[in-house]
Design a protein around this nucleic acid. Structure first.
Lengths: 239, 239
DNA sequence: CGGTGGATTGAGTGGCGTCAACCTGAGTGG
DNA sequence: CCACTCAGGTTGACGCCACTCAATCCACCG
C-alpha cells in the first residue's frame, strides 16, 4: 500500500518520484499509542512530529475547570503536529482517540527538506494551510450554525476526508468517537449532542449504529449543513 | 520607520540583512482600500497576496442567509492572505474594516523565496502557522467560554498583538470595530454584544469610549478571560 | 434640520446547559 | 452461565444565556 501522506498530498498536486522517496524514508521510527493516550503534551517542545499511519487522533485544548475543546480530528495521512516544527511550545495536546500507529519524523529532517526541496516544502506548508482552512470552517459552523447543522457539517467533512485517503466509500464510515468527545468538538454538552444525534437519525439524515455512520442521501445532508467542500482543497493544482 | 512585516517576524526570530532586504522590496505596488471595501473575494484565485501597511482588515465567511462569521482580525504587518499562495480558490473574503493601505506581493515572488531562501520561507510559513494557532484559540473561546470572557479574551489578544507591532501601549488601543462586526467575530447577536460590553464596563474590566479601548488592570482581565499568551508565539526562537 | 449608522433598552422566546436518574451492551470473574 | 461492573447512551425536569423583534436614543454630517 502507498504511503498515506503521499496519497494525501498527491490529491492536491503531483509529487515527483524523488519527493515520494524522501517522504517514504523520512520517519526515524514508528510508535504505537493506546486509545486515550496522550501523544503530545501541551506546553512541550519536541524535536519531531507525528504522522498518522493508523487510527484517529484529536487536538485538545483544556480549560482550567477541566472542560476542553477539541480543535481538530485527525485521520490516516495527517501530519498532526507538523506545526510544532516552527511553533514552540505546543499550544495544545494531541490525544489518541483509538489505538494509533504514528510515524515519527525528526524536525531536522523537515528542516533539511526546507533547505533543499522547495516544492516538497510548499506541499508540507500546504498541509498545514489546509488544517488552518478547516479551523476557519469550524469557526463558522461553531459560531453561526445551529447544533444539528453543525453536526451534519462535521459528518460531511469527515466523510470526504476519509474518502480522500481511501478510508470510506459508499457514504459510510467508521466513526470511533463517543458522544462525549463529540460534545467537546462541537462545543456542546453531552446531553444535547445525544438529542441532536437522535434528531438527525429521526430525519433520516444519518444512520449511526455502533461505530458506523451512514449517510443515506449525501446531497440532502450537504444542503441541511450548508456544506461546501471547497475549503478542503481536494483538487490537483500547481502549488 | 521599519517595514511592519520585518518587525512582526523579528519578534519571533532574527532576520538577516539579506532577508530584510528581500521583504522590503517584495511588493510590486501599494493599494488603498476604503473602509468596508472587499479586498479579496471568496472563491477568487489571485496571483498576489496582501500585507497590511495601515488599517484593519477581517476575514469573513458568509452563510446563505446573509449572516457571516469573522474568522480573523488583521492589523499592521499581517500578511492577510498569504495562504492564497498555495490554497486555491480562496475560502473566505477579506474586507477592509478601516481605510487600508496594502502592499501587494506577487505569488511568483513568494515562490522565488521558497526556491532560494529556506529560512525566510520558514518565517513566512511561521506567520501562517501563527494565524492557525489563533484560529485554534478562537475555537476554544467560541466553543467553551461564556460571552463576557470570550470578549475579554479577544481584547487581551488584540492588545498584545497591537503592542507587538508598536500600535498600542499603556494598556490602551484604538479599536475601530462596530458592535455589529464584533458580534460576527464572537458568534453573537448585536444586542447581546452590547449587553456584554456594558457588563465588562460595569465590572471595570475595560473602558471603551469612541474607538478607544482601555484596560485598567490587564492581570484582572487576563484572569477573567483565562488568557494565556503562549499561542501568539511572541518569543524569539531559532526557527 | 432631517438623515443615517451605530448604540442602547425592553419584552418575550427558545436553544442548550445542568442535574440526576436510568438503560444498555460488552467484558469479566466466580 | 450468570451476576457484576462500567463506559457510554438516553431521558426528564427545570433554568438561564443568548436570540429575535421592535423601539428609542445619540452623534455626526450634509
Amino acid at each position: 500500500m502507498p504511503h498515506p501522506l503521499i496519497s494525501k498530498l498527491g490529491r492536491r498536486d503531483r509529487l515527483s518520484d524523488a519527493e515520494q522517496q524522501i517522504l517514504e524514508t523520512s520517519a526515524f521510527s514508528v510508535h504505537t499509542f493506546a486509545a486515550g493516550e496522550e501523544i503530545v503534551a501541551e506546553g512541550s517542545t519536541s524535536d519531531y512530529s507525528c504522522l498518522i499511519l493508523e487510527g484517529w487522533a484529536s487536538r485538545n485544548k483544556q480549560l482550567k475547570d477541566g472542560r476542553q475543546q477539541i480543535t481538530a480530528f485527525h485521520i490516516l495521512g495527517d501530519f498532526v503536529d507538523l506545526h510544532s516544527f516552527l511553533l514552540k511550545p505546543m499550544d495544545h495536546t494531541v490525544v489518541a482517540i483509538t489505538a494509533c500507529k504514528m510515524a515519527m519524523v525528526k524536525h531536522s529532517v523537515v528542516k533539511e527538506i526546507t533547505e533543499n526541496h522547495p516544492h516538497l516544502t510548499r506541499m508540507l506548508w500546504l498541509s498545514t494551510l489546509i488544517d488552518a482552512s478547516i479551523h476557519r470552517e469550524w469557526l463558522v459552523t461553531l459560531g453561526r450554525l445551529p447544533a444539528p447543522a453543525h453536526l451534519a457539517h462535521l459528518i460531511c467533512e469527515l466523510y470526504l476526508r476519509l474518502e480522500a485517503v481511501g478510508e470510506a466509500k459508499d457514504y459510510s464510515f467508521v466513526f470511533p468517537v463517543t458522544q462525549t468527545l463529540l460534545a467537546d468538538a462541537l462545543g456542546l454538552s453531552t446531553v444535547h449532542v445525544n438529542r441532536v444525534v437522535q434528531e438527525l437519525r429521526r430525519e433520516k439524515l444519518i444512520s449511526w449504529r455502533g461505530a458506523r455512520v451512514g449517510i443515506p442521501n449525501f446531497d440532502r445532508l450537504k444542503l441541511f449543513a450548508e456544506f461546501d467542500p471547497t475549503y478542503l482543497n481536494l483538487l490537483v493544482e500547481q502549488r
